[in-house]
Amino acid sequence: MALAQQTPHELPWLRAGDPFPPVSLALDSTAPAPGLLAAGGALDVGTLVRAYSAGVFPWFSAGQPILWWSPDPRMMMQTSQFKLHRSLRKRINQFAIDPACEIRVDSAFDQTIEACATVHRPGQSGTWIVPDMVSAYQRLHVAGYAHSIETWINGKLVGGLYCVAIGRAVFGESMFSLVPDASKLALAALIAFCRHHGIEWVDCQQNTRHLASLGARETARSDLVRYVRTAITQQPPEWRFEPYLWGELIVCEKVMT
Rank of each mutant, 00 (worst) to 15 (best):
F171D: 02
A186T: 04
T79S: 02
V45P: 00
M75G: 07
L14E: 06
C252N: 15
A216P: 00
S80K: 12
A54R: 13
A188S: 14
P122Y: 10
D98L: 01
A188V: 01
P19F: 05
L88Q: 05
L249A: 00
L11Y: 06
D132T: 10
A42C: 14
I66G: 04
P243D: 03
G55C: 05
Q205V: 04
Q234T: 05
P8T: 06
T257S: 02
L249Q: 06
Y162F: 15
W13I: 13
I166G: 03
Q138A: 07
L84Y: 10
A96G: 01
V164Y: 10
L214P: 05
A192F: 12
K90D: 12
V225S: 02
L245C: 02
S70E: 03
S148M: 07
Q64D: 14
A108I: 02
A39C: 13
A220P: 02
S177H: 15
R86G: 04
M77T: 03
P34W: 08
V49K: 11
L14K: 03
P99M: 06
G155M: 03
L249V: 04
P22F: 08
H196R: 14
A4I: 00
T127Q: 06
R217P: 00
P243C: 03
I199K: 07
P122M: 10
S24V: 12
H120R: 14
T219W: 14
C116V: 10
F171N: 04
P58C: 13
G40C: 09
L214N: 04
P32W: 11
G155P: 00
P243F: 05
A212I: 13
D18Q: 07
V134L: 15
V142M: 01
S87G: 07
G17I: 11
I166R: 13
A220H: 14
P65C: 09
R195T: 04
S222K: 10
D181R: 15
P237C: 07
L25F: 09
I250H: 02
D132Y: 00
K184E: 01
E10A: 15
M76Q: 11
N207L: 05
E253S: 15
D110M: 05
E218P: 06
A146W: 08
S177M: 12
S177D: 09
R86K: 12
R229T: 14
L37A: 01
G40H: 07
G17L: 12
G198L: 09
M75T: 06
L3A: 14
F241L: 02
V251L: 11
R89W: 00
P65M: 09
A188Y: 11
P237H: 10
I92Q: 05
F193D: 03
V134F: 04
F109I: 07
I103W: 07
F60T: 02
P180E: 13
S135H: 13
S107K: 11
R104G: 01
A33L: 04
F95H: 05
C194W: 15
K254N: 04
G160E: 05
D223R: 14
I66E: 01
R221Y: 10
R91I: 12
P65T: 08
